[in-house]
């Protein structure tokens, strides 16, 4: 029995929404057509901010970085989380311990985890480099061969001592292997992805809970049909999980496009090295608060929003075809 009187309860929320979200959101759209700094009143400049963004190499780099980050971190996160959920769903001892252990990294505050990973990935005496060094040493013949296969073969006299780093790997931009020093130089972007995968426990627990919700009848039906482990996962569990995966992916897209703290902390606010981790939110922050180009920053923020909206739409479209909503989800 819904009652009219209770509608007053949503009034504070509506007020807050107007003041803290909708007004700023609309205003930033307005500002995006102006030249505006803290000291000067906004001045209408038409679409010139957008035109400038279209030819701003740094913005393009930031946009590309953001897309690369999203494309690496989201699938990696989903896969690792699904793997954990599936393993924890199995009838083995100690799952509550494992579940807690996997969740704990998610609790480490962003600043602490960003600093911790800087320390872990430190190429000189970081733990990751130290632990992987024996592995890399053992794999060095293979790496030498791989380097040669990639067309980066050094002159014979230098073989085994100094490899030319394949150009697409320089700065460890995509892969962390430095063929020259035969060590793992964790590149900036992989480090960010690694950091996000480390916090994947949250998602794993969600998937696990959903797995535990899969109706028994479905398992029984699958068993009668003679489905094996993989078939059960593929045709019973995955369809049941698909709505929550979709939901997670959408939230992850929104999160990935807003990523600010981690690269800011790990690169001292620079987005380095050489703009390798300069993401769009950092571009907006710098323009708004360091260069005082607030109109320009707002234009960039609307492009960011447009991208999020577009990708969310795509995710839902794909979801409509692939996601299974039977049984009320």
């Amino acid at each position: 029995m819904p009652v009219p009187r209770a509608r007053a309860f949503v009034v504070p929320w509506i007020l807050g929404l107007l003041v803290f979200t909708l007004y700023p959101f609309a205003a930033s759209f307005g500002y995006s057509f102006t030249d505006y700094s803290v000291l000067r009143a906004p001045e209408y400049v038409g679409g010139s901010n957008y035109a400038e963004l279209a030819s701003d190499a740094i913005f393009q780099r930031a946009l590309l970085n953001t897309l690369v980050y999203a494309m690496l971190s989201i699938p990696a996160g989903v896969l690792v989380a699904l793997g954990f959920a599936k393993a924890l769903h199995a009838p083995v001892r100690g799952t509550s311990f494992y579940r807690a252990a996997i969740y704990v990294p998610h609790l480490v505050p962003t600043v602490a985890s960003a600093i911790l990973w800087m320390w872990l990935l430190n190429p000189g005496n970081g733990l990751v480099a130290t632990l992987l060094r024996p592995v890399l040493d053992a794999a060095s013949p293979f790496l030498d061969a791989l380097g040669g296969w990639l067309g980066q073969a050094p002159p014979p006299e230098a073989r085994g001592t100094s490899w030319k780093t394949p150009s697409f790997m320089q700065d460890g931009r995509l892969l962390g292997l430095d063929f020259k020093e035969r060590q793992l130089v964790f590149g900036a972007m992989p480090s960010l992805v690694l950091l996000s995968v480390w916090g994947v426990g949250q998602m794993a627990i969600v998937y696990l809970a959903k797995l535990q919700d899969v109706p028994r009848e479905l398992y029984e039906a699958a068993r009668i049909d003679g489905a094996g482990g993989w078939a059960v996962f593929r045709h019973v569990e995955l369809p049941q999980l698909s709505p929550v995966i979709l939901f997670n992916v959408v939230m992850a897209i929104i999160g990935a496009f807003q990523l600010f703290a981690e690269p800011y902390i790990m690169t001292g606010g620079q987005g380095g090295p050489d703009y390798a981790t300069y993401l769009v939110p950092m571009f907006i922050y710098d323009n708004a608060f360091d260069y005082h180009r607030m109109g320009y920053a707002c234009a960039a923020s609307w492009i960011l929003f447009g991208l999020i909206a577009l990708l969310t739409l795509v995710a839902f479209r794909v979801g409509q075809r692939r996601v299974h909503y039977a049984g009320g989800g």
Partner: peptide, 27 residues
């Protein structure tokens, strides 16, 4: 509560989650 547009307002509330913080940050 019962009021006109409740469902729409609730859906709108959910949709605002999609607005990234950087898009409202400056104003």
């Amino acid at each position: 509560g019962s009021f006109r547009g409740r469902a729409a307002l609730f859906a709108f509330t959910l949709a605002t989650m999609m607005i990234p913080f950087p898009a409202t940050m400056v104003p």
